[in-house]
Design a binder for these strands. Sequence first.
DNA 1: CCCTACCTTGGACAGGATCTAAGGCAAGGC
DNA 2: GCCTTGCCTTAGATCCTGTCCAAGGTAGGG
Lengths: 137, 137
Amino acid sequence: MSDLLERLRERGWRLTAQRRVVAEVLDGDHVHLTADEVHARAAERLPEISRATVYNTLRELVHRGEVLEVATDGRAKRYDPNAHRPHHHLLCSRCGSMRDVRPTGDPLADLPASQSFGFTVSEVEVTYRGVCPDCAA
Amino acid sequence: MSDLLERLRERGWRLTAQRRVVAEVLDGDHVHLTADEVHARAAERLPEISRATVYNTLRELVHRGEVLEVATDGRAKRYDPNAHRPHHHLLCSRCGSMRDVRPTGDPLADLPASQSFGFTVSEVEVTYRGVCPDCAA
DNA sequence: CCCTACCTTGGACAGGATCTAAGGCAAGGC
DNA sequence: GCCTTGCCTTAGATCCTGTCCAAGGTAGGG
Ligand SMILES: [Mn+2]
Ligand SMILES: [Mn+2]
Ligand SMILES: [Zn+2]
Ligand SMILES: [Zn+2]
């Protein structure tokens, strides 16, 4: 993730301790943390970091395409560092845990022109719902 | 929609004027209203109806499977009376308007077992994003 | 080492949605 | 028809997520 910070710094981003810990927290596979979870984990390393800064940093990382923002139902949005390899999600309807999945096939191609209603369609998001092994036990 | 009310009454639902107007407002194709929009339209017919009752009624209709609840990013949830014919959505990323779509193919079948992570997968939701004709103009 | 534009901070604020306690009313039983 | 009772509705408080603000702090180019 440090190459991410380096990349952003070259684009004029100031490298602060707060941004560094947020980036460090957002690392790994199948990571889908809420803003408050990011804040809690960042605060373990940098206790004085504020909620506002976490929100600001997440918003900018999303805006620059480095982090994905995933809305799940009524709950808080989740932040996903795995933004560079497109993927979809498998969501446990009991506990809310998420896994990354890469289904076969191209859903974008499955939308016939007769169903486009004049929209310029650019993106498709697929969410599978089910019960995870832990919740099924 | 009156058969819906009749069905619910038989299951012990009290038939009140408030519930009737909410059900009347939620009728038609491509209908995806927010709770406040439902409230506004219901209030045209029944001015004293409260926001709380609209929320209560919507929650119960969703819980009984008569109305779909669709979460769109950061905005308010939308309520969709077209719950009995499964479908997916095409969402304008500018204005938030939605259309019902029925893509070809079965995305559930596109999730290989190797990608299921032990989940019991029961449902899939596909959201196409784009720009609607009005917003493109 | 300075300067300044950018960044961080706590707290106020806003919108969506839920909860509460008090009074209202649908509908079954007489 | 009218009572009764338990469900329903209501206004307003409250909660949660996320944004905004004004004041002070600091990264990093010169
Ligand atoms: Mn992911
Ligand atoms: Mn729909
Ligand atoms: Zn689970
Ligand atoms: Zn639009």
